[in-house]
């Protein structure tokens, strides 16, 4: 079977962009608040639903859907931290309790979504133009995805390195006590990070939903590769997660080629991310973080 390598590479860029959007919030909140937020999957799902209704039935168009979903889910993320995780942590909850709380929120959100919109998958109706560039088939949505991911990554890079807020976020992530002592309002910074992270998850959710389907498990379907990105990139490390997202995007698309060649089910795709998690934890538990000391 001939493999269309150019297409594989392009698909890898698409997958990597999606994972970058989805994992940035996961890894940043994980790094700042010191626990993995499993409800991140539901932030993605919620974004997909809000985007679907804004862009489709309400007819506001795709860009407006992206913006509204970003703001709405960002608020949900900030509220989840401010209303639940922060008070729990102040009461001395252990990391396990925080993880359990995130799963509880995950259930509340997922089944509320299921109750509000039913479990039947919804599909974005918009027809994306597709073009053929040599051997590569390109769908308009994918170009959007790559563009938005790169744009937001650049924006976030600018914010993190050039603005006071960004420097405060980095300071808080690397040493919360010192940051607090230097007059940074670490709690406010953490809430802001949760807002940005959840908003980015919503953007990822819209693209994932438009590419596949919108249903209460949209986020959970890709939570495994997102954790792989966070672990491989080094927990809390934004620059590490950029590299990791594209590595995992490439690994998954190459992996699918290998699975096809071996006549195995392509449903094993998540196993590739799983293997990456295991290998990273065995050989380099801090992920690629060492490559990016600055962050």
């Amino acid at each position: 079977m001939a493999v269309n390598w150019a297409q594989v590479l392009f698909n890898s860029a698409v997958t990597g962009s999606l994972y970058l959007l989805g994992a940035t919030g996961l890894t940043l909140t994980y790094g700042l608040s010191q626990f993995p937020n499993f409800a991140h999957a539901e932030f993605i799902t919620l974004g997909a639903f809000i985007g679907y209704f804004m862009a489709g039935p309400l007819g506001l168009g795709f860009p407006a859907g992206l913006a509204i979903a970003f703001l709405a889910v960002g608020l949900v993320g900030a509220a989840a931290y401010r209303g639940i995780f922060q008070p729990l942590a102040k009461r001395g909850a252990s990391i396990i309790h925080l993880m359990v709380a995130s799963i509880a929120i995950s259930f509340i959100l997922r089944y509320s979504i299921g109750a509000a919109w039913s479990w039947k998958p919804l599909y974005f109706t918009s027809n994306w133009p597709s073009l053929q560039l040599g051997p590569v088939r390109i769908v308009g949505l994918w170009l959007w995805l790559i563009g938005v991911a790169i744009g937001l990554a650049l924006l976030l890079h600018f914010v993190l390195t050039r603005t006071k807020i960004g420097k405060a976020i980095r300071g808080t992530a690397s040493n919360p006590t010192l940051a607090l002592a230097s007059g940074i309002q670490t709690e406010r910074i953490t809430i802001m990070t949760w807002f940005i992270g959840a908003g980015l998850a919503a953007v990822a959710g819209i693209f994932r939903g438009a590419d596949t389907q919108v249903w209460p498990m949209t986020g959970w379907d890709i939570i495994l590769p997102l954790f792989a990105v966070a672990v491989l990139g080094g927990i809390g490390n934004f620059y590490g997660s950029i590299v990791a997202a594209f590595i995992i995007g490439l690994a998954e698309n190459l992996g699918v080629v290998v699975l096809l060649q071996l006549h195995l089910s392509t449903e094993y795709r998540p196993a590739i991310a799983f293997l990456i998690i295991i290998i990273t934890l065995i050989f380099r538990p801090r992920g690629l973080a060492m490559l990016f000391r600055r962050a």
Binding site: A101, A104, S106, F107, I108, Y111
Partner: peptide, 17 residues
Amino acid sequence: GNLQYILYGILILLVLF
């Protein structure tokens, strides 16, 4: 079916708090 799991989630949060 949905309500049950929403309640479970709320219950867990109440227990944790």
